[in-house]
Nucleic acid binder design. Sequence first.
RNA 1: GGCGACAUCGCCAAGUGGUAAGGCAAGGGUCUGCAAAAUCCUCAUCCCCAGUUCGAAUCUGGGUGUCGCCUCCA
Length: 465
Amino acid sequence: MKIFDTMAKKKRVFIPKEKGKVKLYVCGPTVYNYFHIGNARPFVFFDVVRRFFLYRDYEVTFVQNLTDIDDKIIAQAQKEGVDISQINQKYIQAFFDDTKALNIMPADENPKATEYISQMIKFLQELQEKGYAYESGGDLYFEVSKVADYGKLSGKKLEDLRAGARVEVNSAKKHPADFTLWKASKPGEPSWQSPWGAGRPGWHSECVVMSRDLLGESFDIHGGGIDLIFPHHENEIAQAEALSGERFVNFWMHNGFLNIQGQKMSKSLNNFFTARDILKKYDADVIRLFFLSKHYRTTIDFNEKIMHETKVAYENFLSALRSVDYSAKRQEIDSCGLLEEDVATFVIAMEDDFNTAKALAVLFGLAKLAKKQSASREIRYQAAATLVELGKVLGFFADLENQLKSVASESKMDGMEQKLLQLLLDYRNFAKSEKNWALADKIRDDLQNLGLRVVDTKDGSKIES
RNA sequence: GGCGACAUCGCCAAGUGGUAAGGCAAGGGUCUGCAAAAUCCUCAUCCCCAGUUCGAAUCUGGGUGUCGCCUCCA
């Protein structure tokens, strides 16, 4: 198993600190809004990471925090004219609902920042006692120059940061790169009492304290978006290692960004799509396939065309399973064994830094084989069984039973509508038997105009959505 | 200004020294009253230049282009 480690800037062989166990921490959302399709990428990807480890019989502890105290939350509360706790409640629930809809396994722990205030204060006190923190203007700052190897994750040097035109000069700080550990609160803002006065903790301390508590001072994998490398993760390292003197995290994993039609997502461009909106249009598995068809570290572009293509591509899986009548013969198929060679190819791809794109090629190959009329029934069944098995490792097919039911539109009709539709189809079949092609085609065209596509199969006429 | 990433068929995308996976689209065949669906088949020498090597999409140098971070944005 090889994983690309941002710190080493290369793939390294993954060896868990404790044999057979993986401790994984992924930065979670700040709960001030519905999360968008870009946020969904790390959620889905690290879900796959976790599922793969589980598949390989590791015992996985997966922690994802919820940032429930932050400037953005305060701003959102003012905007919606409600209390901060209501904002938190609303969007935490939305987070759980949306991740569930995306078939993302619930984390083992979802610690909230506000539940860790006292531990954070204790942690910051320790930093201050050891000389890594200083007070200035009511705030507490971390002094980056006290850490010899500050910048080792992002590859930045302190001198460069000082020279950087974009680092704002803040006279309260000793060095422009020093970051806030404790922020004094303004009147009306939520605050907690601390040795430095009433205020709230800085974001960078949150993940450190929670991961130390739940996973220990040093753990296997810490993940998040590529934008978190600096300053967030850099600052986590500085704090954690200042106290423990131990390597904080063994592997740093960062997923690439998602653009919308070639442009960065931004509120000013109004190209924000929430995950829940996308889910109205595309099946969770299609969204998942979209993410996994490209390597996780690259930038990915989201647009209608690619989503449509992905949807069509996904149909390959379903049509393959329909072709062996998977819903009806599930037991028989599942018990006929797997194509071990394909399983091995899949595992090799996944063990190479989670090469999901390559792993997917195995699934498409299996789909093709399951459909292949000229192959033996046994081979086709095995291909189907393997497809389902491996697809589930990637988090697909949670709702397979329903997906395999075709004729989606019929379910939306009430009894009378269905009867009338059947009547029309009967008339059309009558016209066909009379070789009245003009009438038959007119009925088909008219139904098409109503959004009902008539398809003639050897078992009779059917409606497809 | 500092640091870094990427450039593979019309589109998406694997491939890190041994002769280009996969998906979409497209073209052709079968099937069909027609259409759709289904099914079978076909479809690239890897941004440019120079070099290393028996051999490079894969390594080195240069060029061009696109993008990211340096702002508590995944």
